[in-house]
Design a protein around this nucleic acid. Sequence first.
RNA 1: CGGGGCGUGGCGCAGCCUGGUAGCGCGCUUGUUUUGGGUACAAGAGGCCCCCGGUUCGAGUCCGGGCGCCCCGACCA
Length: 439
Amino acid sequence: MRLSRAFQPMLKETPAEAQIVSHRLMLRAGLVRQTASGIYAWLPAGLRVLNNIARIVREEQDRIGAQEVLMPTLQSAELWKRSGRYDAYGPEMLRIRDRHERDLLYGPTNEEMITDLFGGAVKSYRELPQTLYHVQWKFRDEIRPRFGVMRGREFLMKDAYSFDSSYEGAVASYRRQMLAYLRSFQRMGVRAVPMVADTGPIGGDLSHEFLILAPTGESGVFYDASLEEQDWLAQSVDLDDEASLEAFFGRVTGSYAATDEMHDATKWETVPAERRREGRGIEVGHIFYFGTKYTESMGISVSGADGAPFFPQMGSYGVGISRLVGAIIEASHDDAGIIWPEQVAPWRAAILNLKPGDQATDAICETLYASAPDALVYDDRADRAGVKFNDADLMGHPLQLIVGPRGAAAGRVEVKRRATGERSEMSLDEALALIASGT
RNA sequence: CGGGGCGUGGCGCAGCCUGGUAGCGCGCUUGUUUUGGGUACAAGAGGCCCCCGGUUCGAGUCCGGGCGCCCCGACCA
């Protein structure tokens, strides 16, 4: 993208409504614009980040055998009356009436719809297990939206739903999701620690929240350092083997981790002092097992091996995709702006042309840009160098390829790494290789 | 939903108390200048002062009603 033609309205001053750092930076960097309280329009750069996050989540869901579908945003009230939640959900649900006076709602979640879809198609235990997911906009009419996209009313979420014929199968599905989550967040370049969550009336240990560690997080967190030391991508877990899944699950849940509501000071004492980590976290994912709650209430059963019908066991697994954009910024920024982790950055690198019009400088910039036009943003604007440095820092591109007449005359490109501030000078060919390698 | 605040060019704000026909900084346009960390000067463009009603000779300003947005709390992916 050439910045001179990009729809990327950057702000020098912070809009009054933005309080927290991620909200301020998202507005200043031109990632989003608010259109109503808690509702945002995503501009090109912000959308690229959103899509990057969704892409990682999809790849990890696909990897564990979940299948993507796409359910609508609007749902019939009838569906929710069957589960009993239409009346139970409360004013957070946005209710709508169509021209025929039929009651609809803008979905805050999709358990009812997926259960109904599943039940309409699957009739035998032989077709289980199944895990279906989708990435869709949801709406919850929060009393008080705030924190930009982190607590919006409309938000993009990945939600997955597993159907199994036994409790043991449901547990395996749950553990596969846990692995997918740990891998997803690690790939996004952030640390998200799974914490035991309140399981409510169902009980058991099959409910975890994933919190990204950030000083501005809404919950206090306590966890064993081993949870942030593990490389989940390197672990070999056999997704089809229950023993392997169990061993993996043990490695995760064997270490203490809890939010302040669930914190157990006595157990905390058993963690060696040097491995105790305390901080704050932002919830970006939640996985839980809920058994036959919906299959039963909605009368969705399948035939078992003995010919008798039974209610499949379900679990549900959510990731706040749009919230993650804000949460990642909360976890990764400095005074100058955003510091995007590689994998989610809107562009891999920015090319800063310090003197548009200078023949040698333009030539090098154009060569760099042409090597990967979709992965690079080229600051070819007729602005001063200082403006470009500041905007590039604000936008948080992992790499800045700085080209000015001084270096260009010698065929040199200066590379600045946003995360460390480290600078190095290299030849054009070396810079091209760097772009191609993506690191 | 309780408490508080705000709504004035694109953004940040002043003006309102004490009514007299709208101003500042940034941004934008043009020119000159500058050219490796938000350059300087000059000349410009741009405003239904959130909306409706009332008081008044006259309302951005006072009064009433509405709408929108933000902050604290309770609540939450």
